[in-house]
């Protein structure tokens, strides 16, 4: 565990907490893509199957349980408790366009053709593109609330910090995982446009509004 990896995990945790707090305190999930949240829940479910087969550390297990619980709690808030505030008219991304290619690719390019490895690989590919419905929603409405953009910034920072962690681990321990790294780069690149808008607008106190 190095500082970049820890920073990445904490940024991820922060993003999840920001989202839950936003929905809970405003009693509304307006502006949040339920489709992206479904994909994140699917991602964690597929990836953390090893929770029952492999013990790594208390930290590792606790974080997995927290991520899973938070993902399903978010879905509950969006699709049950505050369903009336869910902006489904703007959340029109077709999930099968992301799930099917991720599943197909996981079956072809993986470390080992076993259920747990293919599911892990599927989760890596799916996570890389899981934010697309959310970004699509922001581009459709042309704007995002500040709290939503803080959430997106924390979520994007997480994988960016993981990349630094992978570079560090490659030089310090010779460790590398090509699948995770390439997918992580794709995932981070998807956030670049958003990062630019966040730094140039949101941090200067303006609302995130896309140029017309």
């Amino acid at each position: 565990m190095n500082i970049f990896r820890l920073g990445g995990d904490l940024a991820h945790l922060l993003a999840i907490i920001i989202l839950l707090l936003k929905i809970w305190t405003t009693r509304s999930c307006a502006g949040i893509s339920g489709k992206s949240q479904i994909l994140f829940a699917l991602t964690f479910t597929a990836r953390y199957l090893d929770l029952f087969t492999n013990f790594v550390s208390v930290y590792n297990s606790v974080m997995k349980v927290v991520y899973l619980a938070a993902a399903y709690a978010t879905l509950y808030l969006m699709y049950v408790k505050f369903k009336a505030t869910y902006d489904h008219n703007h959340d029109t991304f077709r999930l099968e366009f992301l799930i099917l290619p991720a599943a197909g690719l996981a079956l072809i390019i993986n470390h080992e053709f076993s259920i747990i490895e293919v599911m892990w690989t599927f989760s890596i590919y799916l996570e890389a593109v899981a934010i697309l419905p959310q970004l699509f929603m922001v581009s459709k409405t042309g704007e995002a609330e500040s709290i939503t953009s803080h959430y997106l910034f924390a979520l994007g920072s997480y994988r960016a910090l993981y990349i630094v962690n992978w570079v560090y681990r490659y030089y310090s321990e010779g460790f590398y995982d090509m699948i995770a790294t390439l997918a992580g780069v794709v995932q981070t690149v998807l956030y670049c446009d958003f990062f630019y808008l966040y730094i140039t607008k949101v941090l200067k106190g303006k609302k995130l509004q896309l140029p017309a």
């Binding site: 990896r5 995990d9 991820h12 090893d50 087969t53 492999n54 790594v56 550390s57 590792n60 974080m63 997995k64 991520y67 470390h111 080992e112 747990i116 490895e117 892990w120 993981y162 962690n165 995770a180």
Partner: peptide, 10 residues
């Protein structure tokens, strides 16, 4: 390598 790959990252 037949051992199960240990994935220590989240």
């Amino acid at each position: 390598e037949l051992t199960v790959r240990i994935k220590d990252e989240l």
